[in-house]
Structures are given as structure tokens and as C-alpha cells.
């Protein structure tokens, strides 16, 4: 994938023109609960965004709308020039172009690591088993666990499982990677191996949206940090401004609590 682009600029493009993700006036309700309030956000290709905020602030909901795991009731979302609001085929295309990593890994427990990585490329992209396995081994090597390919998820540590989940998503050759609190379910000693994998990915120019409370990670790789509270985007800024000089009271309170 990104070998040739490894150190190119953030404007790394694969044949498309607009921003990677555009959200315009996005609103979402769960029954009476207003989960997302008038979200406007544009993410450039190759940009790394970190989203933080207290629990229930809507940050997970926000990134889950990008691949339509959640439906929105109002507004417009365009991913890689495909308008999700138009529905139909666009949703399928966007899901194929975005990879997602979950807090609870969500590996398929009845399949080996290798099978986890090859299923979607074979069934969705229609590529051959041999080719899918070759690609999968390549990505398993990149996340540094090729030797676990024949094991089942339950035989791996949490950190290893999450790295498999990252490899599984990468096997679909996505243009955008979504991370939903990828290290929150991990024991502390395993957080680093997953973050290192994500940093590698960021250095290769992948467009990334990460919901995380790992502020060290945010400082190191984020182009912009977004703070959300009660369904709103409260503050957006480059990491140095965001952490050293937060503009909003709510942001300051939050940063005070987590550091």
C-alpha cells in the first residue's frame, strides 16, 4: 500500500479530489437524546485527527456515522467524494474504503487470525485465496505478529488481538482508518504496542480519525485534536495550541481531569 508514499506529504491522494471526509450540519438523535448537534467537520486526505471528550459526548457516534454503523437524521456526510446521504451503493463503497478498529477488537472468534484477515478481501473484493493470504501475511508482518497467523483470537493477548484487528482492516486497502478507543480495553503494558502500530500507520500517510484518550499519541501524531462534549464539537486545534492554550472552559476542565 503505502510503501511508495511512506514519507510523502499529507496530501497523498489516490485519484480523488475532495476532502477525505466532510460533515455538514450533522444531527443525530437516539429517541429523545440529541447525540450529535450540528456537527461540521472537514478532514483532509492524509490528515490525522484525534477526537477526545468525556464519555457520552458523542465522539464514538461521530466516527461510527462515517461508515454508517449509525444513521444520521439530519445533515450531510461525504466520504471520499461519495455522498452517504444519497444512500444506496455509496454506503457499500464507503464501507469498503474505510477500515474500523473497535475498543473490544471484535475479531471473529471462530476463525483463525489469517481467516479473519482474508474473509472480507475474498468475499467483498473477490480476490483469490492465495492472493488474500499473501496480502494478509504482509500486513500481519507489518503489525509484527506473522507467527500467530494460524491461531485463534482467544489464544492471543489483548494487544495482539488489537493488532490483528488493525491488520484485518488494512487488508481491505482502506483510504481512511477509524479507531474507536482502540486502547481502552487493553492492559496498560499492551497499550504501547498498539499505539506504535498506529504511529507507523500515521507515518505512512494514512488518513486517520482516532477516538482516544492517549494524549501522548495525540501530541505525537495528530494534525488536529477535536474536543467534544454533549454532542457538540467544542474546540478544534493543532495539538500544541490545544494542549498548551485551550480556548474553552470545558476543554480546560476536561484536560485537567485526564492529565
Amino acid at each position: 500500500m503505502a510503501d511508495t508514499h511512506a514519507h510523502t506529504s499529507k496530501a497523498d491522494v489516490r485519484g480523488a479530489s475532495g476532502p477525505a471526509v466532510t460533515m455538514e450540519g450533522v444531527n443525530k438523535w437516539y429517541a429523545e437524546f440529541h447525540a450529535l448537534k450540528d456537527i461540521n467537520l472537514s478532514v483532509d486526505r492524509g490528515e490525522r485527527i484525534v477526537i477526545c471528550g468525556p464519555s457520552g459526548s458523542g465522539k464514538s457516534t461521530l466516527i461510527r456515522c462515517i461508515n454508517q454503523l449509525e444513521m444520521i437524521q439530519k445533515g450531510r456526510i461525504v466520504v471520499d467524494d461519495h455522498d452517504l446521504t444519497a444512500g444506496g451503493k455509496n454506503v457499500d463503497i464507503v464501507r469498503q474504503e474505510t477500515g474500523m478498529v473497535f475498543q473490544s477488537f471484535n475479531l471473529f472468534p471462530h476463525m483463525t487470525v489469517l481467516e479473519n484477515c482474508t474473509l472480507a478481501p475474498m468475499k467483498v473484493r473477490g480476490i483469490s485465496k492465495a492472493e488474500a493470504e499473501a496480502t494478509a501475511m504482509q500486513f500481519l508482518e507489518r503489525v509484527r505478529i506473522p507467527e500467530q497467523a494460524e491461531k485463534y483470537p482467544a489464544q492471543l493477548s489483548g494487544g495482539q488481538q488489537q493488532r490483528v484487528a488493525i491488520a484485518r482492516a488494512l487488508c481491505m486497502n482502506p483510504k481512511i482508518m477509524l479507531f474507536d478507543e482502540p486502547t481502552s480495553a487493553l492492559d496498560p503494558e499492551m497499550v504501547k504496542e498498539v499505539l506504535d502500530t498506529m504511529i507507523d500507520l500515521a507515518n505512512e500517510g494514512m488518513t486517520m480519525l482516532c477516538v482516544t484518550h492517549e494524549m501522548g499519541f495525540a501530541r505525537q501524531v495528530a494534525d488536529r485534536v477535536i474536543f467534544m462534549d454533549r454532542g457538540e464539537i467544542v474546540e478544534v486545534g493543532a495539538p500544541e495550541d490545544f494542549f498548551n492554550n485551550p480556548q474553552h472552559e470545558r476543554t480546560r476542565n476536561f484536560l485537567g481531569q485526564i492529565s
Partner: peptide, 30 residues
């Protein structure tokens, strides 16, 4: 079968038939 299984399959681009056939039903069958 945990809902995360369906979500992970959906996020990978698998559609209803493949989700059911390869992810949900094999786990439900056990």
C-alpha cells in the same frame, strides 16, 4: 452473538448474506 461481530463484519464491507453466512450463523449454530 455479540452485536460487535455484526458491526465488525459490516465495517469490513460484508453485506447481509456474507455477514450471516460466515460470521453470525456459524457462531449461533454452536
Amino acid at each position: 452473538v455479540p452485536s460487535g461481530q455484526r458491526e465488525a463484519a459490516t465495517a469490513l464491507g460484508l453485506k447481509y448474506y456474507n455477514r450471516m453466512r460466515y460470521i453470525v450463523l456459524p457462531q449461533a449454530a454452536r
